[in-house]
Design a protein around this nucleic acid. Structure first.
Lengths: 119, 119
DNA sequence: ATAGTACGTAAGATTTTCTAACATTTTTGT
DNA sequence: ACAAAAATGTTAGAAAATCTTACGTACTAT
């Protein structure tokens, strides 16, 4: 896994990196905006990705947005991305099919081009 | 700074990531093989780069190498890299000088071409 | 044999984090 | 306007994580 996604940073450090209070960070978890992992002992571990997400939350909150609005917004974003992904996947598949049949058409035209004739 | 170099990981997590004991990690610091940062409170914080370095140490140690050998080895590596850097820097500088004078020679030949004359 | 290396382990102190609860201020919904 | 919800701060006590120091041990090198 990438450095960005590995959950290794304790909450105090996250607070320093984001400028948020520990209280706020825990609250945003309660509102399902971040999902840290836990050690056996139960202490939270965040990733750099989480830090970025929290920084983004801080901005939206300053703009007067509410946690549930942020969450809904992100859910929609994810939805759109998923659709775009799906679309790209299908197009890619179609492309491969086209390439496949094109290849055969070209090959066949060489082998049996009437202007050339076999042998 | 890159995610790789930011010092944010506590020693327990580093131990998990590397498979080393906390004692070993502190000992390698004593032998100047890693240099974590500290929080205000004094707890150590490591980077992913440190984690990689520690994993490398673990290998060398398994091969029967001693800490001071590892350190000496790395110092030499750094030295060689520094020289290579310096060499590249000089070559780059020379290249720029060449380009510079080439440019002037061409320009001058236009402005003061004896076959054309000034004014 | 002595000294140095590379740890493990234990003790006690300090730092960090945890949950839960209550208080406060600012919205929001009816 | 009022009650409910949102978004924190604060406090308290417990638990987890880390710190330093020191002693012990098994090797290895000189």
């Amino acid at each position: 896994m990438s450095y960005r996604k590995k959950k290794v940073i304790p909450i105090g450090t996250v607070a320093e990196l984001t400028g948020l209070s520990v209280r706020q960070i825990r609250y945003y978890e309660e509102r399902k905006l971040v999902t840290p992992e836990r050690t056996k002992g139960g202490t939270r571990k965040y990733s750099f990705e989480d830090v970025d997400i929290l920084a983004e939350i801080a901005n939206k909150m300053e703009d007067g947005m509410q946690t549930y609005e942020i969450r809904k917004m992100w859910e929609k974003e994810k939805e759109r991305e998923a659709l775009a992904q799906e679309k790209a996947r299908k197009e890619m598949l179609q492309g491969q099919l086209n390439a496949h049949f094109n290849f055969h058409r070209l090959t066949d035209s060489r082998i049996s081009d009437p202007r050339v004739g076999d042998r």
